[in-house]
Amino acid sequence: MGELASVIFTAEFLGNSLRFATPLILAAMGGVVNERTGVLNLGMDGMMLIGAFSAFAGSYFTGNAWMGVLIAVISCLLIGLLHAFCTVTLVMNQVVVAVAINTFSMGLASSLLRTLFGTSTSALRSPGFENIAWPQALQDLPFFGPVLFQQTIFVYIAILAVPTIWWVFFKSTWGLSIRAVGEYPKAAETMGVSVTKVRYLALLFAGAMGGLSGAALSITGLNTFIDNMTAGRGFIAFACIIFGRFHPVGAGLGALMFGLAQGLQLRIQTVGIPMPYQIPIMFPYIITIVLLVAMGSGSVPAGWGTPYYPDEE
């Protein structure tokens, strides 16, 4: 068993897991903000997909990976705006809107991939992000080198995003508004906080983070886009938020857990361990459900998933 562990838990494995966790952390940090304002956003997967596609397309056509990121963020802001318009202004069912946004994004990304790039996309590569050029001494550090110093910039953005969101939530007045709107929108409105404005901004922020997260998928190494590239990662990010009880640090830890599970799956397949590789990927979902049962319904923001009707008795 000890021998097995030493084969699996290598520095390379942890580095890979952190890389897998990065898009999840980015998406979860956006998601946790809008979930806390009371909007149930299952549309993160669609946002990430659009982000991944527009980062690739933007980077390909401008020849600059940073432009790709910018275009991804702008495209996803538009998707966030659509989500906000439907769920906040038109007060539509939040799950239905999310299902529609995911379907729409899948259709749009695949269609544009074919109309813009033709049918054979396998050879197309865009400019992308390399690992950050840390001093060679740091990169060669035993263990810490591969885990922390052979990564792209997205990994560091993700790691910094967690304390930043935590600070905004619990130390700033914005955080107070966000939490008030999610827990008790009526009271927030009486306090002079506009529920509509806060929810719009939160969904736009979630969109921007979804764009970053998508870019972290498509233009950090693969530098291409394939159909359904997110493979449900937006839903995993949602699961991370649930796992973390709507707390940014908890959500970040959840993303790490899912990242480790994915790293483990890869390791099992490459090392050839006689165990179905599906077991480690299923595991975090089961843990999340068990946690959900253990903590009960109280840990969810009180106004979560319920539309807010301004001025309605």
């Binding site: 439907c86 539509m92 239905v96 809107v97 529609a100 379907t103 899948m106 259709g107 109309t115 159909d227």
Partner: peptide
């Protein structure tokens, strides 16, 4: 030459419009 995946966009829009 309109890609098959195009119909997903129509499907999503139909749902949004119906519910709206």
């Amino acid at each position: 030459g309109i890609p098959v995946s195009f119909v997903y966009m129509v499907q999503a829009m139909v749902i949004l419009f119906v519910v709206a």
